[in-house]
């Protein structure tokens, strides 16, 4: 019994002497570049280009320290970024082209880390003149972007059948057939939102326009 008590006392001493922990270090200087992945997402409109993303690292609460700096670089600007809870976000002026989010690191941490994306140029959508659901409805925008962007046009509104068109070819216009927008049992005037999205991986450039439609 005495021996058992002594063993128990030793174990308790061990546990009490320190709180158990096994945590990845949250400071960036303790992280190898090989353990850091930056994911970037771009949400561009005609008003602004929002660059956001997150760091995938061993710690979910990474803090940039010790000379590690984060920068967003475009063809027209380079801006420092702050990291909060492993995420970052910044709004830039309307922009189209390559974007890089770069973690610049001092020697001995495995080199710089970079995430790249390409966002389509900003554009606007033009509404049809005097749109009628019973007639063809044509929506136009600045098209002709590179084929690697996936363009989708959608039309939504309370008085129409919602439509979504993944376009194989971005020609800058699309015509809905006569009656295609008509909603069974609804013959009223309403406001319709047309939205065009040009997407490449995680970079999205979009534009919307509202216009009235009559039966």
């Amino acid at each position: 019994m005495r021996a058992g008590g002594a063993l128990g006392a030793i174990a308790i001493l061990g546990v009490v002497a320190t709180a158990c922990s096994d945590e990845p270090s949250p400071v960036s200087s303790d992280m190898s570049s090989r353990d850091i992945t930056i994911t970037v997402a771009i949400d561009g409109t005609a008003e602004r280009t929002r660059v956001s993303g997150y760091f995938a690292t061993p710690s979910s609460q990474v803090r940039l320290v010790g000379g590690d700096t984060l920068t967003v670089v475009t063809e027209t600007t380079a801006r420092h970024l702050a990291l909060r809870d492993s995420t970052f976000q910044i709004d830039l002026p309307p922009y189209g082209g390559p974007v890089a989010v770069r973690l610049t690191r001092p020697e001995g941490r495995g080199g710089d880390v970079e995430a790249r994306a390409r966002v389509a140029p900003p554009f606007v959508v033009r509404p049809p003149d005097a749109a009628r659901a019973s007639a063809p409805v044509t929506v136009t925008w600045e098209g002709g972007t590179r084929r690697d962007f996936a363009t989708t046009l959608s039309l939504t509104g309370p008085c129409i059948t919602p439509q979504s068109r993944p376009l194989g070819l971005d020609t800058g216009s699309y015509t809905f057939n006569a009656g295609e927008l008509e909603k069974k049992g609804v013959a009223a005037r309403c406001s319709v939102t047309a939205k065009v999205v040009k997407k490449l991986d995680t970079a999205v450039q979009s534009a919307t326009v509202d216009f009235p439609i009559t039966p």
Binding site: R147, T151, T161, R165, L167, G168, L169, D170, T171, S173, Y174, T175, N177, A178, G179, E180, E182, K183, K184
Partner: peptide, 23 residues
Amino acid sequence: SVGRRLERDRGEYTFSVGDFRIA
């Protein structure tokens, strides 16, 4: 595939140039 469902049959349908991605 590219699909359309027409609630009201008007006897015709026009596919736009942008509907097909042929490269």
